[in-house]
Design a protein around this nucleic acid. Sequence first.
DNA 1: AGCCAGGCCTGCC
DNA 2: GGCAGGCATGGC
Length: 225
Amino acid sequence: MQDKIIQVYYLLENYYGETGWWPAESILEIIIGAVLTQNTSWSNVEKCIKNLKSNNMIDLHKLINLDDESLKSLIKPSGFYNLKAKRLKNVLIFFDSFCGGNFEIIRKKSLNDIRDNLLQINGVGKETADSIILYAFDFPIFVVDAYTKRLFKRLGINFSEDYDNLQEMFHKYLESNTYIYKEYHALIVNVCKDFCKKKPNCEFCPLKIICFYYNSQCWSGDRSR
DNA sequence: AGCCAGGCCTGCC
DNA sequence: GGCAGGCATGGC
């Protein structure tokens, strides 16, 4: 089990190289992106980020004070905009009260303190919380998502699809290292996206290489199990 | 045309 | 405590 987790990482790393994730220019942008990308393709989120930037709205207090209708129109391309406007404000208001908008203060707190607080926000689940903690604040916590579950299920090496169990598996078998956690999650997203694009008969699909190595069924790009 | 995307909450059971 | 159903846009 441990060998496989590590070998998959090195296979992907060798194929893709360094990803440099998360794609963003600031901590606040990462936080915004983490909320907007919930069940949404990143290309749609990019349009929103662009909207926000062109309106000079990547700013904690400006966003908090922005009226709901304006916020909704700016984040419309990401879908679920009524929900997400509310969720985004919940998150931003939390950070304003938690650190007064000074994100450096967050880095001095404990991972568990931040996580417990984030998970209490309506609109923040485990993946969103962990994405923010890992990518915005550089704490070592592994982010599990739909791709992670699907890939490792296909590779036949996850013992449970439960978020906590899967996360524990990575924590147990990888060294606790922010860089590796960031890159591994990004690599998983990359390989899953690539495979879906190139399905089903790309001979050089890296996922097929992985499937070959692990003698697992190759997945047909759907969400079947 | 229809399925899917880097979830999460609510309301039933 | 598990699980549909709802949320909504844009790309292929």
